[in-house]
Amino acid sequence: MMTSLQASQCLERSPLYRRHAGATLGRLGDSLVVSRYGADDEHAQLQRCALIDLCNLPRVGFRGAAAADYLRERGYQLPDAPNRALTQSDGSQVARLSQNEYLLLGSLRDGGARIAAEERNWQFGASANYLLPRQDSHAWLRLTGEHACAVMAKLCGVDLRPAAFGTGAVAQTSAARINVIVINLGDEALPCLQILCDRASANYLWDALLDAMAEFDGRPAGIDALLQR
């Protein structure tokens, strides 16, 4: 047991780390992440209704007239329209938020290493390609399970049912009265919405989501079950 792992030993901390009391923690780069709550397998929970804190998984944004070329050169496949998202071959995900703005979400497979490197290696130069500190500006939650869109319907005025909001759809909208970016990158096997919100509001939205999830027996879960899919 790695009971000695504590968020306060790391420089990077999720705004939600105090919500993970009692969970089994694992390392994610220079920070910690919840592997699972309790001893039980969380696959069934994931399928039903679960909320996962991915705040410590790297993510970054790029914006500007030169952003698309920059990212293509670095091997990313870019969505061909705003408010669409694509999963890359390594599991990273790229969402296009406007004509020239992109959001890169790290993959659990490499602990977000590729995306973390993008943030580290970016140089501010003459070209119009501006880094956006999305890991610090936004909290990242993942809402999974068959009830995901029913949960969101209690908080959000955009129709997120699969028929209207299929895989690859992105909505920049309001949920529980704060701004959010919702991305459907689920699949047939596991419906799943990525939710990014103002980092300072992470605790607020976490509570609002758990409250909305209660009627579906929704709970927080860790990343182990996600990784072992």
Binding site: R18, K154, A176, R177, D198, S201, N203, A208
Partner: peptide
């Protein structure tokens, strides 16, 4: 409804 009263907290809140 269920009142939504957003609150922002800094990283040092706790």
């Amino acid at each position: 409804g269920r009142g939504f009263d957003p609150a922002r907290q800094t990283p040092m809140h706790q």
